[in-house]
């Protein structure tokens, strides 16, 4: 027992004069913090509008959205952790003695330190997540290369009597009741080429035309 015990006892006794002031101060601080969180939500929602991601692949868009969602969650958690460290939570009613106040102060100091660490880690992880989302938008083409458009390779009976087949390759435009219509690249340029169905010996879909 020491003079410190007396100081704590006096401090505990003074709390009776600060009850309303304390809870109102805490409420005001939490209100300010929650308004800041609302502004954060609005800002992130505007920044990650879908039109910004329209040029991305499906995979890139999903990954960027996931990373931004994680970043937003981490920022919210970090902000709440910092607010918890700064303002504390209102708690239950307890008998306030010097000893209880002393114990509470020691516990609260340790708890606040833990919440500050959580806030800092959440912030850094959120920055990493945002950087990841930006990276996805920059390197979407490398990360998720688009599949090349398939081409149709048609083996066509020769129109003469040689019995040979000719290979015609191009993008399938449409099929009619009498023919396949391919968009074929020729030395003179691309042109639409109908192939009568009765001349078709075989059809295959390949990633590119044979040499």
């Amino acid at each position: 027992m020491s003079l410190a015990d007396k100081k704590w006892a006096k401090l505990a006794d003074e709390q009776q004069f600060k009850r309303v002031e304390n809870i109102r101060s805490s409420a005001a601080n939490w209100r300010t913090g929650l308004i800041a969180l609302t502004a954060l939500l609005a800002t992130v929602t505007i920044l990650k509008g879908p039109e910004k991601a329209s040029g991305l692949s499906d995979e890139g868009r999903m990954l960027a959205a996931l990373l931004l969602g994680v970043a937003l969650a981490l920022l919210l958690i970090g902000s709440l952790a910092a607010m918890r460290a700064a303002f504390g939570y209102p708690g239950d009613e307890h008998l306030i003695t010097g000893e209880a106040l002393r114990e509470w102060t020691a516990n609260e100091a340790r708890t606040a330190k833990r919440w500050v660490k959580r806030a800092v880690w959440s912030f850094f992880l959120a920055v990493i997540a945002v950087a990841g989302a930006v990276g996805v938008t920059w390197f979407d083409g490398d990360l998720f290369p688009a599949d090349p458009a398939g081409v149709v390779v048609v083996e066509r009976h020769s129109t003469d009597d040689s019995g040979e087949t000719i290979v015609v390759c191009g993008e399938l435009r449409r099929i009619t009741s009498t023919s396949l219509i391919l968009q074929v690249a020729r030395p003179t340029g691309e042109r639409s080429e109908p192939i009568p169905l009765d001349e078709v010996a075989g059809v295959a879909i390949e990633s590119e035309c044979p040499e």
């Binding site: 505990a12 709390q15 009776q16 009850r19 304390n22 809870i23 504390g88 939570y89 209102p90 708690g91 239950d92 009613e93 307890h94 008998l95 306030i96 003695t97 209880a100 106040l101 114990e103 509470w104 516990n107 609260e108 708890t111």
Partner: peptide, 9 residues
């Protein structure tokens, strides 16, 4: 001694 709010104690 009076009761009061001491946060999360």
């Amino acid at each position: 001694f009076r009761t009061g709010d001491m946060g999360s104690l």
